[in-house]
Design a protein around this nucleic acid. Sequence first.
DNA 1: AAGGGGCGCAACCGCATCTGC
DNA 2: TGCAGATGCGGTTGCGCCCCT
Length: 279
Amino acid sequence: MVTCPSISIPAIPYLHIYLYQLNTTSQRPAMLCYRKGTWTEEEDSILLSIVNACGPCHWFRVSDMLGTRTAKQCAERYYQHLRPGLNHGPLTSYECFLIDKIILEKGKCWAYIAKQLVNRSENKIKNWWYSRRYKQYRERRGKELDVRYPPSDLESSDIARLVDVPSGQGVTKVSPSSMNFDTTVLEPRSVQRYDRQLSPKEFFLPQSTPRASQNRNISFRSIISTMDFQNAGNADRMSKVQAHMHALPTSAFSQLGSFTTLGPNHHTAQYTFPRYKLK
DNA sequence: AAGGGGCGCAACCGCATCTGC
DNA sequence: TGCAGATGCGGTTGCGCCCCT
């Protein structure tokens, strides 16, 4: 008899029998009738219970146990919606910027992009991008404007959410003519430094500006610079930087102003990020 | 109040790739 | 090595909510 201590048997009728069958024979239960459309709460909870018991793999077995969905539907539902820790909130401006930059550099590799952003589903990113592209298409077709656009969905609250700062704290949009984006690329020794074990605060010190380091000044500019690590095989390093940033409480920061940059290809989008320093 | 369009999003689909026999 | 099953991935579709007229 197969035991599954982590699941509730009454929630999944005859699950123990299914598990027993599936572990003792290669035969699947009789052909089941699969349905389409929106998942019910009951289906979600059963799917989660099965995955908790068996792990997120062997989706044909999971499908057999659930009984109402195909393996593919189960896998997709889990990875895009039920996976623990998944962030269902709106994409932040910084995340949008990252998406644009990665697409420019590597193309539309949604799975890769999803891995670079913290706990975002591939579908969410894809939906955002196609939705925006469609919006642009409509705007351009209607007004015959040039390709430059300020994304209308980039609100101050989104930017503030990135660093857990209450909405309304000054984030201002700057005209393109006044932009001053530091395109400094980190030198190799900076990359080496990021490879050492550093405290979260050290992590954000701009490596190329000693004075800023002295003042314990941090900015998103330094975070953006870390994207260069991707090209040097340091993709996970940026995630750690982001994670550290997210981990710091609001009270740890005071605002220094903001800086603005065009999107990564310098003619598609305009982003304005707040600059903060550690108190 | 009704209906039509915009929009965000979940879900679907088909092809590609991986894996185990 | 080849095949079939399993899984991954990118693009598309369609549903439902909201807002405007």
